[in-house]
Design a protein around this nucleic acid. Sequence first.
DNA 1: TCGCGGATGAACT
DNA 2: GTTCATCCGCGAG
Length: 216
Amino acid sequence: VSADSRGLKKPVARIPRDRVPADTVRLARFLLGKVLVREIRGSMSAGRIVETEAYLPNDPACHAYRGMTPRNRSLFLEHGHSYVYLCYGTSYMLNVSSEAAGIGAGVLLRALEPLHGIEQMQRNAGGSKPTHLARGPGRLASALKIDRRHDGLDIFRAEELWIGTDGRKVPKVAQSVRIGITKAADERLRYFIAGSRHLSGSAKLNTPEEASCTPP
DNA sequence: TCGCGGATGAACT
DNA sequence: GTTCATCCGCGAG
């Protein structure tokens, strides 16, 4: 149990690197239920990851598809490093690199269930209900004050922004097509905790009939 | 609820 | 000049 977990209802433990999958789809599923922790000058905010998207090697929708550039180089770091970029001039997106060093791929974090520091998140994000606070990748980053300074972090070992576990098991993982992209839009590479009330996307995308459910 | 249009800025071609 | 993995507000149903 990490000393960094003080203040949380359930303690958040660091995850040993050898337990983190070096495979994009496996990592997208592994991250569901884990806790994203943000520490700013001694105060902590945290939320459970309830929705992710996989961006595979050789995937036209992945930013790494056309090779390494100054912006996307973090996607090519060893699995478990952050890739943060500004989208549409307004929203930061937080990804986790997901393959061996040199292979460009990542997992986008799309929604959190706020667990701790909710009032601070509301101040950061302009105040809203917990179910809306970190719903969507842009709001997620806004609520936790994530920006380009958090690009390239070792996301399981960093201090200011890291991912840990409180031991909670995910009852059921569902999947659907990815949201908001124009290339390879038919791939069912969005993963989420079935029944969560903190998901982005239309209600229809989140219904069990549309989203095929698979064991976690 | 749902769908639409505009704001927005950095990277890339 | 084009692209972009978004968000917000608005109006119709």
